[in-house]
Design a binder for these strands. Structure first.
Length: 263
DNA sequence: ATGGTCGTTTCACGA
């Protein structure tokens, strides 16, 4: 079973690449972030023709997420317990969707960006991550043997080596102790980074800004992760970051991250 | 400190 996560940066502008990607990489389950499409705007036809089902959470089209699967799509949940909204009245932000696919619980997560460390969005990011940790800890207790994957764009670089030049992030989000602590709290709740053992750093990234030829110079960030419960982790036999998908024109600014599970 | 490039709710703003 092959599971991928990808911040696609608009599924409508990228749908041809999405269809080509799942075919080329033989993907069974694909978690997407930043779909930028409401549910009624989702271009599902081509994927359905390829044998996939699509579940999306796109009420807020900027932050939309989705799970695409050809091995079943059951028990779909949009959001997690106590997931905070933003603003007043609270925005119904579609940053999380979970589904059981072929016996594996897959979550597609789009962690709030945070904008700046003194921005209200930054504090919202930390609240959101705290609620995610609590929900994820409860899942471990209620179903300790279930393979669960928390995949997506975490908008956090857990280690200094996960950004191209840590000295340039002195006043930036993604690397603050609070954000890294929030990421670590999810790990401590029982979810391991299953990709890093197969793709050790440094200079192993999943995101490169569009401008200043950041990809061509490999000046990127490692912010997209697959965290797995113990039952998930022990089935992982390989993982890769599809840099080829980031190359050339018309790509997302993120590369897909792929994990292969034993049957 | 600034700007660069994308995508969209586009001549503005978020990432």
């Amino acid at each position: 079973m092959r599971i991928a996560t990808w911040n696609v940066n608009s599924v409508r502008s990228r749908i041809a690449r999405v269809e080509a990607f799942v075919a080329r990489q033989d993907i069974d389950v694909l978690a997407l972030q930043e779909t930028k499409a409401r549910d009624d705007q989702w271009p599902t036809m081509g994927l359905e023709a390829l044998g996939y089902e699509v579940a999306s959470a796109g009420h807020d089209q900027w932050n939309g997420v989705a799970v695409v699967s050809r091995v079943g799509l059951e028990d779909v949940e949009r959001g997690f317990p106590d997931m905070p909204g933003y603003g007043e009245p609270p925005a119904s932000e579609a940053r999380a969707i979970g589904a059981t696919c072929g016996g594996v619980r897959v979550w597609s997560l789009y962690v709030p960006n945070g904008r700046k460390p003194d921005d209200p969005h930054y504090h919202y990011k930390l609240r959101w991550l705290s609620a995610l940790r609590d929900a994820a800890a409860a899942w471990r207790e209620s179903a300790p043997d279930l393979p669960v994957a928390l995949t997506g764009d975490w908008n956090i670089a857990p280690l200094d080596e996960d950004v191209f030049d840590i000295t340039r992030f002195a006043h930036s989000t993604h690397v603050t102790p609070a954000e890294r602590g929030a990421f670590e709290a999810v790990v401590e709740a029982g979810y391991a980074d299953v990709v890093r053992p197969f793709q050790p750093g440094p200079e192993v990234y999943t995101y490169w800004d569009y401008y200043r030829q950041r990809f061509e110079r490999n000046r990127g960030m490692r912010i997209d992760f697959v965290l797995g419960s113990p039952a998930f982790e022990k089935r992982v036999v390989g993982a890769e970051i599809d840099r080829e998908e980031r190359a050339g024109t018309g790509s997302s600014d993120h590369a897909p991250v792929i994990v292969e599970l034993s049957d």
